[in-house]
């Protein structure tokens, strides 16, 4: 197996009979055409189970981000099988991909909050994708999740009036508010100081545990390795045994 080993035992042993949230088999991916064609992923197998916090590490150019965008349904799968939340993404239509993405909570390196919306409105915005949730309920859930990330006193602040760490926490709240079934995070702590970074990953970990949804996090930040149930290490487009 090329997959992974645990850095520490998961809170609950990952039962092999639990259906994985993400299953990838023999995924290959290249960019460019003809002479310029460059293969980025080589025969990658990956599985992520409910409740896990999985870190994806590796030097830049190793294919982590490409793998993440494939799982996120942001790129078409070229080769191999990739099941995410019960959908086969290889050959999926645009609408199916959008459907899958709506069940995923995204946390980006750049928080990309809308500058003209308040903290609360940025989080509420997610419910535009869930019209069955009433306006009142949306506000209630947004307020609750913002309390949880410690921004209960910043609800009506505009993004340019809060600190970088607080913005990232808003982004976390935005990712979590609609109850996603998978969280994909790309360097969520890169722009944060140690303390804020720590707070964000602890938050992710505890919320993941409570809501039972797995977290796949790309990170270079060695300070947060301890939250992981597993570390997947990539080099040159392949998954390798983690350097201990």
């Amino acid at each position: 197996m090329k997959t992974s080993t645990s850095t520490r035992p998961p809170a609950e042993p990952v039962a092999s009979n639990t259906a994985p949230t993400v299953t990838g088999r023999g995924i290959c991916h290249s960019f460019g055409e003809g002479e310029l064609k460059k293969q980025i992923l080589f025969d990658v197998d990956v599985s992520i189970y409910p409740g896990e916090v999985v870190l994806l590490t590796g030097p830049s150019g190793s294919g982590k981000t490409t793998l993440l965008t494939l799982i996120a349904g942001l790129r078409d799968v070229q080769e191999g099988q990739l099941y995410v939340l019960g959908h086969e993404l290889h050959g999926a239509t645009r609408d199916e991909l959008v459907d899958v993405r709506r069940k995923i909570g995204f946390i980006f390196q750049a928080h990309n909050l809308l500058p003209f919306l308040s903290v609360r409105q940025n989080v509420e915005l997610v419910f535009e994708l869930h019209p069955n949730v009433s306006v009142d309920e949306a506000t209630e859930r947004a307020d609750k999740i913002l309390q949880l990330v410690g921004l209960g006193d910043r609800l009506d602040y505009m993004p340019d009036k809060i600190s970088g760490g607080q913005k990232q926490r808003v982004a976390v709240a935005r990712a979590l508010v609609a109850g996603p079934q998978l969280i994909l995070a790309d360097e969520p702590t890169a722009a944060l100081d140690g303390k804020s970074g720590r707070a964000v990953v602890d938050l992710l970990q505890s919320l993941a545990r409570e809501q039972g949804c797995p977290v796949l996090m790309v990170t270079h930040d060695s300070r947060v390795l301890d939250v992981a149930d597993r570390v997947i290490h990539m080099e040159d487009g392949r998954i390798v045994e983690p350097a201990q």
Binding site: R101, I104, F106
Partner: peptide
Amino acid sequence: SQYATMKAMG
């Protein structure tokens, strides 16, 4: 970048 983020979110 915000629009791209919104598109990613679905």
